[in-house]
């Protein structure tokens, strides 16, 4: 197996007396989708926030391309090419697609926003992901459907050469057809060479697109499996704690 793009070793995080992450290991590989599953309160969100630099971990080692790095601010995470697409999307509905995709990293020339370059890069990024559901990059996000918004959020994450994209429940609020669209987008995203970490409750989705699945249970990473070597029942067992894993990374 090649070197993981990102590797967490024995990561810990607690809020006051509550230990949320109790020594978690996680790996994600370029071009692969790593699903992160676990029941509510297992620590998925905390793990994501740590990776995003929003809520730094208390302890543990973060390796990026085999180099130890620190992730204490969103800027550091972004500098390493780590992008998060949050469950609630974090888009500004009053802005259009281009403005959202470039939010916080606008192209500026001569002191003013260079709308032309931003427009071109935004539509190129959408095209590279074979997005066909958006008619104009200048549509306001408020006029988009849930699937389209998810598309914009994902496109935003890969705009600036992302190495790791973390998707938090990308299909949670979507209908059947839109779920299908987003999942194929996730696959294309990974095929373009990005390491994708997919957080999901929906094991059908996970088995459809993921290459690996890692299961969190009450702050412990109880299993890290190749999707080919496992099945739905096993993963459900790990999630609910009725089954324990005896292998590496346990």
């Amino acid at each position: 197996m090649d070197v993981p793009v990102i590797e967490l070793t024995d990561v810990r995080k607690s809020f006051g007396p509550v230990d949320v992450l109790k020594g978690v290991n996680l790996q994600a590989f370029a071009g692969k989708v790593t699903a992160l599953v676990g029941d509510n309160g297992a620590g998925k969100s905390t793990l994501v926030k740590g990776l995003a630099g929003v809520q730094p971990f208390d302890a543990g080692e973060i390796k990026f391309n085999n180099e130890v790095v620190s992730l204490t601010t969103p800027r550091e995470a972004a500098a390493h090419g780590i992008e998060v697409v949050y469950q609630d999307l974090a888009l500004c509905e009053n802005l259009d697609i281009v403005q959202n995709m470039f939010l916080g990293r606008e192209e500026v020339t001569a002191g003013t926003l260079n709308e032309g370059i931003m427009e071109r890069e935004a539509s190129e990024t959408l095209q590279s992901l074979s997005v066909r559901t958006v008619s104009s990059v200048r549509q306001k996000v408020s006029s988009l459907s849930g699937g389209q918004r998810q598309t914009v959020a994902i496109a935003r994450s890969v705009l600036k050469n992302a190495k790791v994209v973390i998707l938090d429940e990308p299909t949670a609020a979507l209908g059947v057809a839109q779920t299908e669209q987003v999942l194929s987008l996730v696959r294309r995203l990974a095929d373009s060479g990005v390491a994708v970490i997919l957080i999901s409750h929906n094991l059908v989705d996970v088995f459809k697109v993921a290459d690996f699945v890692s299961v969190l249970y009450l702050g412990h990473m109880v299993a890290s499996l190749d999707v080919k070597d496992t099945n739905n029942d096993d993963v459900v067992g790990y999630i609910t704690g009725s089954k324990t894993y005896e292998g590496k990374n346990a």
């Binding site: 929003v54 969103p74 972004a78 999307l89 974090a90 500004c92 509905e93 009053n94 939010l103 916080g104």
Partner: peptide, 12 residues
């Protein structure tokens, strides 16, 4: 003004 949380996450 549109979404402070989104703005914060975008590094603003």
């Amino acid at each position: 003004g549109g979404n402070p949380e989104a703005a914060r996450r975008a590094g603003i």
